[in-house]
Amino acid sequence: MPGKIVLCRCEDMTLADLEHSVARGYTDIEEVKRYTGFGTGPCQGKECLAVVGLQLARLTGQPPSAIPPFTSRPPLAPTPLRLLARAPDAHRFPDDPPDDE
């Protein structure tokens, strides 16, 4: 049996999954992202967004330029909570302990 053609390795999303999503009517790249999970893993689409976009253009018979990217969400790389917790941007609640605890 021929093997899987993987487009998003983080989420094990295959070309067949993309075809299945399109066949079910989920053709907007945001809908495809939600239905197949592609681009939602640790790499957040770095490896798969362009690949899926080009395949989606082919499957839906559109020029690639008609396929927008899904929304770019921060953080652009996995970021530990401990790093973010010290940013001065944080809102302070009345019961927040002081910074130098």
């Binding site: 093997g3 899987k4 053609i5 993987v6 487009l7 395949q55």
Partner: peptide, 12 residues
């Protein structure tokens, strides 16, 4: 640019 894979069977 990011290195990406190519769509062949069992490419992962």
């Amino acid at each position: 640019g990011y290195p990406v894979n190519l769509p062949i069977a069992d490419n992962d």
